[in-house]
Amino acid sequence: MVEKKDAMVSRSSKSTKLQAVDLLKILIVDDHEVFRCGLRDLLNDIDGFRVVAEAGTCQEALAKLAVVPVELVLLDLYLSDVKGIDTVHQVRKVFPQPRIIILSATLDDDILLESVLAGISGYLTKDTPAADIVKALKGFLQGQLAMIPPVLTRLVELLVQKYYAFETALTIYQQNETKEFDRATSEIPTPNIIPPTHSPHISLPNLTPQEEKVYQLMRRGYSNKQIASQLFISRFTVGKHVQNILHKLGATNRTQAVSYNSFEGVE
């Protein structure tokens, strides 16, 4: 009977040790002691979490991280010594391994985006109900971002806005590049060297098939815009083809290129 009890105690001890190993070690960084105490009690009641250290400033947090094994940092962004996204960068610079979840009094669009780009694992506001914080942290254990639906929705909206802003900027850039190519490779007016109805097809083996199509239209007096419309390609692409043609034919300008048979001595 005694041996049976000893075996049960031994198994219980092993189970307790296993649970301790599986607990996620947390550092709370916040300059309000009362808030830290309440959050610590909340987290220690969640399976899989254990608060192992607390800090009231960024420097104190760095000192704790240097001596206490920590896997997750719950970080307030507005401390007495460091504020905003710099708080995340300060911790990441010295200790890149622990995951970081932000606990902020407010939801700031710029900081939310910058924090996600900095690699944080979640963003929670301090007015979030305790039950929602617990749910978000349990989701974090499953590999999800620790965010409640309103914050996640706002993040998606911001990312969509950034995408469209980038797309607009890219379109403007491409349009400007197209204009620059047209300016650099087109002469106005373009000389009509050979009438359209009598344009012989000249085989130029060193041009690609697409470049040869562009070249034949150049010889017929087509502008870059007209060539683009004829071949269903962009003016930017036409400009690149024209540059390649000038280079391959050894021509210094469009006029010389379309007169290739003349300056090469071709009959």
Rank of each mutant, 00 (worst) to 15 (best):
I102E: 00
H32N: 15
V51R: 00
P196A: 07
G119N: 03
E157G: 03
D182Y: 09
Q210D: 01
D81N: 04
R220H: 03
H32I: 11
L124W: 04
D41L: 13
L27W: 05
I148Y: 02
T237K: 15
E267K: 15
K179L: 13
R254V: 13
Y163T: 11
V68M: 11
V266I: 15
A63P: 07
T57W: 05
F95K: 08
Q144T: 01
P149H: 03
T252D: 14
Q175W: 05
M218D: 05
N244P: 06
R235F: 01
A130S: 14
H89K: 13
G250A: 01
S229P: 00
Q90N: 02
V94M: 08
N224H: 15
I233S: 05
G84C: 02
L113M: 14
N206S: 12
L249E: 09
N192T: 10
K64T: 12
V29A: 11
E71I: 01
T128Y: 06
R50H: 05
T128W: 04
I101N: 01
I202Q: 09
L246N: 06
A63G: 08
P189N: 02
G239C: 05
P69R: 01
L152C: 03
Q19A: 13
R99A: 14
S234C: 07
G239Y: 08
S115Y: 03
T252H: 10
G139S: 02
D47S: 06
T16I: 13
A55E: 07
S10V: 01
Q216D: 08
M218E: 10
I148D: 02
N244I: 03
T87P: 00
E167M: 09
H89V: 03
L112W: 05
N253I: 05
Q174N: 14
L158C: 06
A7T: 12
E54Q: 09
D22N: 10
F95S: 08
Q226T: 08
A63L: 10
I245V: 12
A169R: 12
A169D: 10
E177W: 09
K126E: 03
T255F: 03
V29H: 09
I193D: 03
R154E: 04
A251I: 04
M8V: 13
A61F: 06
I133M: 12
A165E: 15
T252N: 13
Q243K: 11
R235G: 15
L204F: 08
I100M: 07
